[in-house]
Design a protein around this nucleic acid. Structure first.
Lengths: 177, 177
DNA sequence: TATACACTGAGAACAAGTCTCAATCCAACT
DNA sequence: AGTTGGATTGAGACTTGTTCTCAGTGTATA
């Protein structure tokens, strides 16, 4: 498997913007500069972005516009909204635009990394999902696997000083999560 | 695998309350009637409950108390808070009190069901998680798998009238999700 | 009984995400 | 070039799940 921090395989070159433009057109929407900037951000990040991340990297874009663009792009099948464990939404490009992946969620620093599963594991996953329908009647359209743990950096810090407990990321988010 | 709607294997009888009381004691907290009522609710549900579910089934309990109990129980390692795809939190008993399970999330009616994975799949999962450490340096403590799709009821409705699109659960939650 | 501290209820406060509305942009047509 | 209709945008008000505050109540220990 590969851990990526850049755009997925299918997002290289200009095919990404062509694809997005086509999907927006099918939804009777335009591919304006604001929306293009958002898609660029998501493609370059290579991992789900929070609205805070987006505001940092695109300070000129009002949040209401960012949220609206994300809704529009989601409805056009370009963006997927994922609920992280801290209760805040994060946004990423749809999997059929990048590629199927899972998330490595570091519970110490809060970082989310993308990881592409091995074919062997995806095969096991698919036969498992198929068996669900037989036993429960549940028909699966999609799945999401989040692996919780410590990223390489935090793990090094953790083993460097085993006597001290590392602080966890956002244990009790203040205000409305 | 089994799809459960009742308490997990380890929650039968009175061992559940003894275990919870012990964990609360270790956190210097009491196992009061309000907290016991919440634990009973979660154990009987057998699937993650929203604050709305809890308010329905325990109308006498103020929400502020319910939230506070859930925070306390979470800190004592009794309850786990899960972020559903609609942006609302749901609450369930910790896995080491019930048993390891995954979630079937119906994207039509919003229902969340628990499902216990097959040993074969869990074995594939474990070797996959182990391989992550080698390739990325990420050390996994835990994982969560959510299967998105249509539950048996919604799937029947979906195939009964293929010409009509079924409404999706909370596609655009009004106000603050 | 006295004391200390944990627990509870009621409601205020907070903030992520959504909605409203007036202004602006853009494509298509004349 | 000018018009027109509809999509897009920015600013800010609004909604509402969740957390915080505070005064009052319960409870264990001495």
């Amino acid at each position: 498997m590969t851990v990526s921090r850049g755009p997925g395989d299918k997002t290289g070159g200009d095919s990404l913007h062509g694809l997005v433009e086509e999907r927006l057109r099918q939804a009777a929407q335009r591919y304006t500069s604001g929306r293009r900037a958002l898609v660029d951000l998501l493609a370059q990040a290579g991992h789900p972005l929070s609205i805070e991340d987006i505001a940092e990297q695109a300070p000129r874009m009002p949040r209401s516009s960012a949220y609206r663009h994300l809704v529009d792009l989601q409805q056009a099948g370009v963006v997927r909204r994922v609920a992280a464990n801290d209760g805040y939404f994060r946004f990423e490009l749809a999997e059929d635009i990048t590629e199927h992946h899972h998330h490595l969620v570091c519970t110490y620093c809060g970082q989310v990394l993308d990881v592409t599963p091995t074919p062997a594991f995806e095969q096991a996953m698919n036969s498992y999902l198929a068996s669900l329908t037989g036993s429960s009647g549940f028909v699966s359209d999609d799945h999401r696997l989040d692996v919780l743990g410590a990223c390489a950096t935090c793990n090094r810090a953790r083993s460097a000083r085993r006597d001290q407990a590392l602080p966890r990321a956002t244990p009790q988010p203040a205000g409305r999560p």
